[in-house]
Computed example of a mutant assay.
Amino acid sequence: MSAADGELRPRIDAAVVRRLVDTQFPQWRGLPLRAVDHDGWDNRTFRLGDELSVRLPSAAGYVEQVAKEQYWLPRLAAVLPLPIPQPVAAGAPGEGFPFPWSVYRWLPGTPVVLRGDVSRDAALAEAIGSFLVALRSAPVDGAPWPGTHNFFRGAPPDVYEEEALAAFPLLGADADRARSLWAEATASRWEGPPVWFHGDVAPGNLLVDGSGALSAVIDFGTSGVGDPACDLVPAWTMFEGAARDAFVETVGVGLDDATWARARGWALWKAAITVRDRPADAESRATLARILA
Score class of each variant (00 low, 15 high):
T23I: 01
L292V: 06
F152C: 06
L181S: 04
R55T: 02
L132V: 08
E249T: 15
P139L: 12
A3M: 15
A282C: 00
D158H: 14
E161R: 15
D121H: 04
A293H: 12
V66D: 08
E161P: 03
F152W: 15
L171E: 00
S223G: 11
A243I: 01
V275Y: 07
G224L: 07
W28D: 00
L48A: 05
S2C: 04
R244I: 03
A134Q: 09
W106M: 01
P169Q: 11
L181V: 09
G192L: 11
G40C: 13
G204L: 07
D245Y: 02
G192H: 13
L214D: 04
V66C: 07
S2D: 08
L181M: 09
R290S: 10
D174S: 15
S180C: 09
T274K: 14
P228W: 02
A175G: 05
A92M: 12
A35E: 15
A258G: 07
Y104I: 00
R153L: 11
F99L: 08
V201Y: 03
G40Q: 00
A202F: 14
W260P: 02
V112W: 05
D245G: 03
T274C: 03
D209K: 01
V225T: 13
L132T: 03
D219R: 04
A178S: 05
P157Y: 02
A213P: 03
P193A: 15
E191L: 15
A235P: 00
W196G: 02
S53R: 06
A293S: 15
S119E: 13
A155T: 03
A261Y: 00
D22S: 14
G199W: 00
D42K: 08
L292H: 08
A258H: 05
R177Q: 13
Y62E: 14
S215V: 08
P81S: 13
I273Y: 10
G254V: 12
Q24K: 10
P156V: 09
A155C: 07
T287A: 10
V133M: 05
F239R: 00
P228S: 06
V118H: 12
P26Q: 07
D158C: 08
D245R: 05
S137N: 11
L82I: 02
P139N: 10
T287P: 03
W266H: 14
L288H: 09
A67K: 01
L76C: 11
Y104G: 00
P169W: 12
A286V: 04
A263F: 00
W28A: 05
G254E: 14
S223C: 13
L132Y: 04
D37T: 12
W41N: 13
G154I: 03
D158A: 12
P81V: 12
A229M: 02
A123H: 11
R262C: 07
I291Y: 04
A185C: 08
F220Q: 05
V88K: 01
L8Q: 11
S211C: 11
E69N: 15
A185S: 07
E64G: 10
V103L: 14
R105F: 01
V112T: 08
D50E: 15
F99S: 10
V201K: 02
P32G: 11
V21Q: 00
A178Y: 05
D227S: 06
F239S: 01
A289K: 14
A202V: 09
V63M: 10
S2A: 11
L8I: 12
R19L: 14
P194S: 11
L171Q: 10
I84R: 03
V225L: 10
T287Y: 05
P157L: 03
L214S: 02
F131T: 01
A166S: 12
D281W: 06
A14L: 13
G129K: 00
R18M: 08
G226N: 01
